[in-house]
């Protein structure tokens, strides 16, 4: 075989891989949208479930997912930003920083169900928060912490050193420089990281299995110590519990469609913002 033919076959395989990968995305979206959209109605979005989970809506699950996500971000965002500021602006180089970096990397690689077990042992049992919004949010917050840290770090590192030096040269202290010069410039980057984290947290299921989620609750949660329904858990429960699999599957399609649209909108937005920023920095 001559080199040209080999090259053609090789490049043909590469084209096939990328087409296959992208088509998975569209196949998943297509099937879920095609069957999910039929179920969506005003009632589905605004009412609670009725008739043994076979009719009605999923509003409590949507609200629950909103609370859990909000709680996780409130917990993880300040902590993550502070951690990134320390690593990028303050950290004396050396062993300590390496240990923190290593632990962030490893925290990012911990299986999601392990966060659920940690939440169960620490928040639900040890602190006695019970299965609640608080326990679930904290478990999700720890899961998403590495994501926020690395996004913030990337944003901070993208700011030229000369800007910091100019500020210090004018007599500003380190903290004044960070507060007035570095952070404002890093806001767009931190924002995209945050939006991506929202998408991630909203879809996570394993960490809330034993720390927050319930299949059916009457009404909406009253405090941070209430159990909640959540969209991703609701999909799982509809597919694996209950006594009317066919009717439940239809509702699960609807839930999946809502979750997919939410997550794709949120991450699409973040990716779009970042794409524009990158072209801004790199011309």
């Amino acid at each position: 075989m001559n080199q040209n033919t080999i090259q053609k076959i090789g490049f043909g395989f590469l084209s096939f891989s990328v087409i296959a990968t992208i088509s998975f995305l569209f196949i998943i979206i297509f099937f879920i949208a095609a069957r999910g959209i039929r179920v969506i109605s005003w009632e589905f979005l605004t009412a609670g479930p009725r008739d043994g989970m076979t009719a009605g809506g999923v509003a409590p699950a949507i609200v629950g997912t909103f609370y859990l996500t909000l709680g996780a971000i409130i917990f993880a965002l300040p902590l993550g930003i502070a951690c990134a500021i320390y690593l990028c602006e303050y950290s004396p180089k050396g062993a300590v920083v390496n240990i923190i970096r290593l632990s962030i990397n490893n925290l990012a690689g911990v299986p999601s169900v392990v966060f659920g077990l940690f939440g169960l042992a620490v928040f639900v049992k040890f602190f006695n928060f019970g299965a609640s919004i608080l326990s679930g949010s904290l478990s999700l917050g720890i899961l998403v912490l590495p994501l926020i840290i690395s996004a913030t770090q990337e944003a901070l590192l993208a700011i030229p050193h000369s800007i910091r030096e100019a500020s210090m040269a004018l007599g500003a202290t380190k903290w004044q420089t960070i507060k007035k010069i570095v952070l404002p410039a890093a806001v767009p980057g931190i924002l995209t990281g945050t939006i991506l984290s929202i998408g991630r947290v909203a879809g996570e299921t394993a960490p809330i299995l034993f720390t927050a989620a319930a299949f059916y609750l009457k009404g909406y949660p009253k405090s941070v110590f209430s159990e909640v329904m959540a969209l991703p858990y609701h999909i799982y429960a509809l597919m694996t519990e209950g006594v009317y699999p066919e009717k439940q599957t239809a509702i699960a399609y609807g839930c999946s469609f809502i979750l997919l649209v939410l997550v794709l909108l949120v991450s699409g937005l973040a990716i779009f913002i970042r794409q524009r920023q990158r072209s801004y920095y790199h011309g």
Binding site: T21, I22, L196, G203, I235, Y236, S256, L260, V263, I271
Partner: peptide
């Protein structure tokens, strides 16, 4: 590149429960 890279990132952002549901139902 400007189209493919974001699409692959979006594929990465699809929640695992959606993949699970897709596997089970379809």
């Amino acid at each position: 590149k400007a189209i493919l890279k974001p699409l692959i990132e979006i594929l990465a952002s699809v929640p695992s429960i959606i993949y699970g549901f897709f596997a089970m139902a379809i």
